[in-house]
Design a protein around this nucleic acid. Structure first.
Lengths: 303, 303
DNA sequence: TTCATATTGTACTATCTGTATAAAAATATA
DNA sequence: TATATTTTTATACAGATAGTACAATATGAA
């Protein structure tokens, strides 16, 4: 996506935050971002597609921040999870994502609808995986239900907490309360041994590639993080961190990551004169290689 | 509301169920219900107002059925509550109320938005009151939170249960599971003594008249129910049940119930030759009188 | 400079909500 | 029954909107 297109996405998002999706006309967007109608329809085939672009950039920002919270923290510590949720909520609010989501579910566009739904399922899966880390693999059976209920309780609590304490919202309190409830629900479910939704359902909903695979993502980002730190200390960041950021974007955000390019960039990175960095880069390469191999097995057409 | 207007509301609702609110044009409604544009705008000042009319009729049907479930059952028995929730869910689905609600929250009409929000708060209040009946007055402190969380869990469970078992939804199972969770949450909250939202908030949100007062509604409908039964046995229903239904509508659905009319109708009802019925009518009259008195104190301008 | 591509401006189609109004039909009133 | 009032119809119109079409223009690379 070129800079101009990005600019349009940004301006449109701002307008949507202020006036809502439906109430913002394409003409408004054209005026506000200073492009012509022709250009607009050259970039996006419709207003809905522009909205998808907005969601995609917001998602990737969200995921990035979410992973950053994890760095240097114990993922099994529930306090880390609390921080991640708080971050997610403030970002959601800032970008009015929830409002936009709701606005979308209404428009009779199956593409848009499916996109949002996938995003929500992915979010549930993320919580589910985090719960496994927090509560332990042995409680897996109940944790998908817990993730789903957690989302429900949280959403509803926020809604009415806002109503009760108009606007001056102390998110932390709501998250704390909600997390406390879920901790007890987990314990209670283990006793009563009830299950509503089979955990296998997740794989049916999201049969997609390992790209968002929890473990890979964690290792990958951790590796990038340590490398960035090394380069930062050595004041070599200018060139190398740029390359690292390219890899990050290509692997996580691109639909069809160009493996040959990533390989080449990694080769360039290896020229750094630093023992620890070289070892780390080697590990990163192994990780990425393994990831692409696995992905190719699943999608043989791309191999 | 005259019959023709009611017919339009019904036809429009049907169209909205099939095609959604936004995707149904006013012309569609005109064609489908066989009226002219002029008449439409004579009945409703806008498409949004028509939607409010649809919601109002659906609400009153919902409340009526909800109260009917209660008749002859123990309100403190949680199984009665389960039945009520099941009924509510099937009706919601049939009338696609949730979808329409969501569709509305998006349209930038403050009236519409407020109307829906009020409805949701009233629903929470109803659950809260039912929970008090079920779990006992002494747990009141936690029960508003529980009502809110119950709604959140239920909504999210339904959503993902539907996704997992596409379409062939066994609502009972979901309600059962959700109610079981809430029962434990109530017990757990009593131990941990945490509270998120003050129960006084409800009165701030809904300072409106006693019309929806839980206790009054219950007694009133029970009275009507027994009377209807008496008339039905005696085959005098034709005339008297019509009168009863008029009272029901005037008291529960009308914005400004005409007390003088209700009084007159009750006088007519008293002419029935049946000892038990007369006693019941007497009680009903006392009940309604007390209700209007209370209401007038709150709204002295109407007295 | 030349050529391909990106961008602009503008006119156009089609759809939609809501207004206006005169004529016709139904209903109330005397 | 005759007259007055209200309701309904039919139709034209105004003002927005999403998206299309296309010729003219600008930009940037070879």
């Amino acid at each position: 996506m070129n800079d101009r297109k990005k600019h349009v996405v940004q301006m449109a998002h701002q307008l949507f935050i202020e006036k809502g999706f439906q109430s913002t006309s394409i003409q408004d967007i054209l005026d506000f971002s200073g492009i012509s109608k022709g250009t607009f329809y050259n970039y996006f085939s419709s207003k809905n597609e522009l909205l998808i672009a907005i969601f995609k950039t917001s998602y990737s920002e969200l995921h990035k921040l979410r992973d950053e919270v994890l760095i240097g923290q114990d993922p099994a510590n529930i306090e880390t999870f609390v921080k991640q949720i708080e971050m997610q909520l403030t970002l959601n609010r800032k970008k009015k994502l929830i409002t936009l989501f709701e606005e979308v579910m209404v428009i009779n566009d199956p593409d848009l609808k499916q996109f949002i739904e996938l995003g929500q399922i992915r979010n549930i899966r993320w919580i589910y995986n985090r719960f496994i880390e927090i509560f332990g693999e042995e409680k897996k059976r109940y944790l998908l239900d817990c993730a789903i209920m957690f989302m429900g309780i949280l959403r509803e609590n926020i809604k009415f907490y806002r109503l009760a304490n108009d606007a001056n919202l102390n998110i932390k309190q709501v998250v704390r309360y909600t997390v406390n409830r879920v901790v007890h629900i987990v314990a209670e479910l283990e006793e009563s041994d009830e299950q509503l939704i089979q955990t296998e359902a997740l794989e049916r909903w999201l049969p997609d590639c390992q790209k968002t695979d929890h473990l890979f993502r964690k290792k990958f980002l951790h590796s990038l993080f340590t490398l960035k730190n090394i380069f930062h200390q050595k004041h070599e960041q200018l060139k190398f961190t740029e390359l690292l950021e390219f890899i990050e974007e290509e692997v996580l955000d691109s639909k069809n990551p160009r493996f040959f390019l990533i390989k080449s960039v990694l080769q360039t990175l290896k020229t750094v004169e630093n023992q620890t960095a070289q070892i780390e880069i080697e590990q990163l390469e192994q990780l990425v290689k393994a990831y692409f191999k696995e992905k190719d097995v699943e999608n043989p057409y791309f191999s």
